[in-house]
């Protein structure tokens, strides 16, 4: 192949990486952007500090880490494990348990912090979502008809949405109500994303398709035609595009001009038959990163339809991908334990 030098040049020139001996289940930057964390199938979390280019490893869970999110603090993270623990950690601090659930897995975690509302930590355990205040006090527990498969908190911290069998549920975080607004669609929903302006809620499904409910009228949106399951999806910061994995390209559905209904999606970085596993939208621009089943990582400028390779294939299927809050760094990890962080900031 002709692309021997090309695909890895960004990783080589502007990236740091390490090879660990475990599945990378997720990665995330802290809210202040100063720490990159990669959570692993061996129960550890690897921290990387771009400022001094140092790595640090922390033992957190007895089994595998199943979920990772930013904590509500500037420098911390929260994780859920198959040891039934919801934990919080920060560089240089003791790891703390927020809650324990015995043999139940803590499969999803999420948090929200901002000026307009109180900070929130959420975790999904079986059919329940537990919501905690910043200090770890349990605020409320929300029950669902079946196991929760994904959590999303809206951009204002006012609502939390959950995907499950036969649809999704939306809860207001501040009220004491014990009933959710339910969005129904038959089938097994496996993940969820909320439009940044709350114009739509979109779930991924067992049947290689996505389903959306326009808000507030609940109009159904069916997005299908994927050759594989969509394991990752998210809206761009502008809310104009929904980026999705599950095809041999980054599939982008337009959420403007009447779309996505009746519109064809834009497909970027496709053509070689390798399935996109993870997508991550840039926090500021209409730019999306994607990681593929062969290990290839690219960044795509949606409007200009230009693709920038970040890392070439060969290090395992990409299983984690994220941007730093200012969009200066892109982190990723693979099923085979390759962890990397690439610096996109302007060099002086």
């Amino acid at each position: 192949m002709a692309i021997i030098e090309g695909p890895d040049s960004l990783l080589r020139e502007r990236g740091v990486s390490q090879q660990v001996d475990a599945f990378v289940i997720g990665c995330q930057f802290s809210r202040n952007g100063q720490t990159f964390a990669a959570a692993l199938g061996d129960g550890t979390v690897q921290f990387y500090h771009p400022a001094d280019r140092s790595w640090q490893s922390l033992n957190v869970h007895k089994g595998a880490v199943l979920s990772l999110a930013q904590d509500v603090t500037p420098d911390g993270f929260i994780t859920g494990g198959d040891d039934g623990q919801l934990a919080r950690m920060a560089p240089g601090a003791q790891t703390q348990s927020i809650a324990g659930f015995g043999r139940k897995w803590v499969e999803h975690v999420a948090s929200w912090a901002g000026a307009k509302s109180l900070p929130l930590i959420a975790c999904a355990v079986g059919k329940s979502i537990h919501l905690y205040a910043a200090d770890g006090t349990l605020l409320k527990t929300m029950e669902h008809p079946s196991t929760v498969t994904g959590i999303a908190i809206d951009s204002k911290g006012k609502r939390v949405a959950a995907s499950h069998y036969n649809g999704a549920s939306i809860w207001f975080t501040a009220t004491k109500t014990t009933t959710a607004k339910t969005l129904e669609w038959k089938g097994s929903h496996t993940g969820i994303a909320i439009h940044p302006a709350f114009e739509a809620i979109v779930t991924t499904m067992q049947e290689n398709a996505l389903h959306g409910w326009r808000q507030p009228d609940g109009q159904h949106m069916r997005m299908s035609g994927y050759p594989a399951k969509t394991e990752s999806h998210g809206f761009t910061a502008s809310g104009r595009w929904l980026a999705t994995a599950g095809a041999d390209a980054i599939v982008l559905w337009p959420f403007f001009g009447g779309g996505p209904m009746g519109k064809a999606p834009t497909e970027l970085a496709g053509g070689d038959g390798i399935i996109a596993k993870r997508v991550a939208c840039h926090p500021l621009h209409d730019v999306v990163a994607a990681g593929f089943a062969d290990g290839l990582v690219v960044v795509a400028d949606i409007a200009r339809e230009r693709i920038l390779p970040v890392a070439g294939p060969g290090r395992g299927a990409v299983s984690a991908l994220c941007w730093s809050p200012n969009g200066n760094h892109l982190g990723f990890g693979t099923e085979e334990g390759f962890v990397a962080c690439v610096d996109f900031s302007k060099k002086p």
């Binding site: 599945f23 061996d42 595998a64 199943l66 079946s146 498969t149 097994s188 499904m205 067992q206 049947e207």
Partner: peptide, 25 residues
Amino acid sequence: EMNNGCICCTVRGDLIRIINGLMKR
């Protein structure tokens, strides 16, 4: 139930989730 047009096609949703989780270790 699966929405694949097959009336008796049912799967164990919990197994799909758990097996995927177990594969991480």
